[in-house]
Design a protein around this nucleic acid. Structure first.
Length: 455
RNA sequence: GGCGACGUAGCCAAGGGGUCAAAGGCGAGGGUCUGCAAAAUCCUUAUUCGUGGGUUCAAAUCCCACCGUCGCCUCCA
């Protein structure tokens, strides 16, 4: 039984998909006007991993992750660069896929883009207006919050509390300061689309409602994203969607915690961001995945070089165990399924079924790492490796070492070093070891020969 | 001001009424191995879970208060 903490109820609930054996899931993707940062990567990696876990557990998952390719910041950045918004967003969609690919994130079933759904968005808004949930003013269209009775249920807020809050903006054309824009009339020089109102473009929240219902249906299982999206983004999406269909829109809401830097949320507006591109270069994809999955997805976590080095060391312990298994039994030893495998698989499932508790999952893995390093039993080792490979379906590490073409050269150098050692020429031997280490090769001498591995 | 989350060893981090004298990782100290290393391995590193009350036969786990940290209430993963 898989359990998920549902933001809507604030409780851990048993996960029961609408349709047996199938899961429909939507994750809010990036606004494409620059490179993604480590905070963005958290949601991407965590929910990618969760999706794959669901697949591992036998569900057929339809996974949608959108790109917001039209908004104020995209327009601004495109103007600064003197290019079209289309050109800018195309570029950063491509850059996103480069990072995602290196991070081991599987492509979604669908990657819809806002500007491909403008007609559907217009239809959707028209329906809202017909049903009395929306009103237009000066070419803008607004959602009437007071018409939707459970507004605030997701973020657990009361309309009265929000109205009294000091930070609600005053906007003359809105009937209520909490009403939010569905369609924005174009200002001079902005990209725009024809509409029953003035020509303009979609508001902030409408795209997710439209793309998700178009691709997944009026109701679907899981909607996920960062917890900074709960209000207003997801609250508004929910209001629109349920007002539009008259049905419950999403059954389970999953929200990941924020990544902070020096106790402050990592965000583009604060400027304290660390690009995924850069993190990948400095620490590598495995360390970054390890880092992102090492804490429960709902908790906040701190980003720093110490944390990353720690994650890298942790990952290395697993990678080292894989290398040791290979050294002990080679590549093609077959694993035999038995009670050992079943027992450990059950422990892993127990951890992950419980609201995707990845720290607990790693605890299970490290216990097996220890066993692998301790034993020389071929069957035992083969079983452990089989489990690791099986679990890697959702962990998404890349255990393959690059530089395979250089293996023969390394081998030669290691032999050369050993002849030097035999004649007690340790100066030469250490020089070779040092050089190899600089090139990323670690040598391990032992009583039965020298082994080496790519670090 | 409103809403929410969190505070567990030197650090990171699970657990969330008894089987907890609290998983796992990083780091540190000592032993083995080694030409020296590295890696590995063994041992050690929380009688205690922010503070103070309470409920209970029993609390890190539930309740209350307080202190501290963070997030949302504006674009944000």
């Amino acid at each position: 039984m898989i359990r998920i903490t549902n933001t809507l109820s604030g409780k851990k609930e048993e996960f029961i998909p609408l349709e047996e054996g199938r899961v429909k899931m939507y994750v809010c993707g990036p606004t494409v006007y620059n490179l993604i940062h480590v905070g963005n990567a958290r949601a991407a990696v965590v929910f990618d991993s969760f999706r794959r876990y669901l697949e591992y557990r036998g569900y057929s998952v339809t996974y949608v992750q959108n790109f917001t390719d039209i908004d104020d910041k995209i327009i601004k950045t495109a103007n600064e660069e003197g290019i079209s918004t289309k050109r800018l967003s195309d570029r950063y969609v491509a850059e996103y896929f480069k990072d995602a690919c290196r991070l081991g994130i599987e492509p979604a079933t669908f990657h819809p883009r806002t500007t491909d759904f403008v007609n559907e968005i217009i239809d959707f808004i028209s329906v809202l207006q017909k049903k009395g949930f929306a009103y237009s003013k000066n070419g803008d269209v607004y959602f009437d919050v007071s018409a939707f009775k459970s507004y605030g249920a997701l973020s657990n807020r009361k309309l009265s509390d929000m109205r009294s809050g000091a930070r609600v903006e005053i906007n003359d054309s809105k009937d209520d300061p909490l009403d939010f824009v569905l369609w924005k009339a174009a200002k001079a020089g902005e990209p725009s689309w024809n509409s029953p109102w003035k020509s303009g473009r979609p508001g902030w929240h409408i795209e997710c409602s439209v793309m998700s219902t178009t691709l997944l249906g009026d109701s679907f299982d899981i909607h996920a994203g960062g917890n900074d999206l709960i209000f207003p983004h997801h609250e508004n999406e929910r209001a629109q969607s349920e007002a539009w269909s008259g049905k419950k829109w999403v059954n389970y809401w999953m929200h990941n915690g924020m990544i902070s830097v020096k106790k402050e949320k990592m965000s583009k507006s604060l400027g304290n961001i660390f690009n995924v591109r850069e993190a990948l270069r400095v620490y590598g994809p495995n360390a970054l995945r390890m880092y992102l999955l090492s804490k429960h997805y709902r908790s906040p976590m701190e980003f720093s070089s110490d944390r990353m080095e720690e994650a890298k060391a942790s990952y290395n312990r697993i990678a080292n165990a894989m290398d040791e298994i290979k050294r002990k039994i080679g590549d093609d030893t077959k694993a035999v399924e038995d009670s050992f495998s079943k027992e450990w698989r059950a422990r892993m499932n127990e951890a992950l079924d419980d609201d995707f508790n990845t720290p607990q999952a790693f605890s299970v893995i490290f216990e097996l790492v220890k066993e692998a390093l301790l034993t020389d039993d071929r069957e035992h080792l083969a079983k452990i490796r089989a489990l690791f490979m099986e679990w890697n379906y959702f962990l998404g590490f890349d255990f393959e070492k690059k530089n395979v073409n250089a293996d023969a050269f390394v081998e030669t150098l290691v032999e050369l070093r050993n002849t030097a050692r035999v004649r007690n020429d340790y100066e030469q031997a250490d020089a070779i070891r040092k050089k190899l280490k600089e090139l990323g090769v670690e040598i391990r001498d032992s009583s039965n020969g020298s082994h080496w591995r790519w670090m």
